[in-house]
Simulated assay, not measured.
Amino acid sequence: MNDRSPDAQFTITRVFDAPRELVWRAWTESADAAEWWHPRDIVIKDGSVAVDARPGGRYAYTMVNPADGTEYPTVGVYREVVPPRRLVFTWASPGEPDETAPVVTVDLRELDDDRTEMLFHLRGFPGRPGDANVYDGWDSAFDLLGEQLAAQVR
């Protein structure tokens, strides 16, 4: 992952029409994560998602661009896991040091009527709406997450 800067950061906030426990599971269960841990038009390599959502646990997945076969492996370490409210984890390419990797914080807040507010914050990598890069990639993935959650609560 290039273009990193320790001072760069961005936040995306979403509200999902799903209970917080369901959103939590989407972040912490391998089968659920495999459905949305990628932007639209990118896929997850079969069998590549592994999640050990506990402090010190690791996760890994590989996105694939079906148009040209380019693979994007991603790994990280969970620094904080507070079910079903908060996740803090590193976000890097394999081989990058965990100590200098960008850090993702996901806070989930229960709202009325079984809705959940998700505050996603990425520190250590720049992003802005329309960048056709990291911000837009995560934003697109959250669209898929919303669709997945909507299908589960019907």
Results as ranks from 00 to 15, higher is better:
residue 2 N to P: 13
residue 3 D to P: 00
residue 7 D to A: 02
residue 11 T to Q: 07
residue 12 I to L: 13
residue 16 F to M: 11
residue 17 D to G: 02
residue 22 L to V: 15
residue 22 L to D: 11
residue 24 W to E: 11
residue 28 T to I: 09
residue 34 A to F: 05
residue 39 P to A: 11
residue 40 R to I: 11
residue 42 I to E: 05
residue 45 K to L: 05
residue 46 D to T: 15
residue 47 G to F: 02
residue 47 G to T: 03
residue 48 S to I: 01
residue 52 D to N: 12
residue 52 D to S: 10
residue 53 A to T: 01
residue 55 P to G: 00
residue 57 G to V: 02
residue 58 R to V: 15
residue 60 A to I: 02
residue 60 A to M: 10
residue 65 N to A: 15
residue 65 N to V: 08
residue 66 P to D: 01
residue 67 A to G: 14
residue 69 G to A: 01
residue 69 G to L: 01
residue 71 E to M: 08
residue 72 Y to P: 05
residue 73 P to Y: 05
residue 75 V to M: 12
residue 77 V to P: 06
residue 79 R to F: 00
residue 82 V to Y: 03
residue 85 R to T: 01
residue 88 V to P: 08
residue 93 S to R: 04
residue 95 G to L: 00
residue 97 P to L: 04
residue 97 P to Y: 06
residue 97 P to C: 05
residue 98 D to N: 03
residue 101 A to L: 05
residue 103 V to E: 07
residue 106 V to E: 01
residue 108 L to T: 07
residue 109 R to M: 11
residue 111 L to E: 06
residue 111 L to Y: 06
residue 113 D to N: 11
residue 113 D to A: 06
residue 114 D to G: 12
residue 115 R to D: 06
residue 118 M to H: 10
residue 121 H to N: 14
residue 121 H to T: 15
residue 123 R to G: 02
residue 124 G to C: 05
residue 125 F to E: 06
residue 125 F to L: 14
residue 127 G to L: 07
residue 128 R to Q: 13
residue 130 G to M: 03
residue 133 N to E: 11
residue 133 N to G: 09
residue 137 G to N: 13
residue 138 W to E: 11
residue 141 A to H: 15
residue 141 A to W: 13
residue 142 F to C: 09
residue 147 E to Y: 07
residue 149 L to H: 09
residue 150 A to K: 13
residue 150 A to M: 13
residue 153 V to P: 09
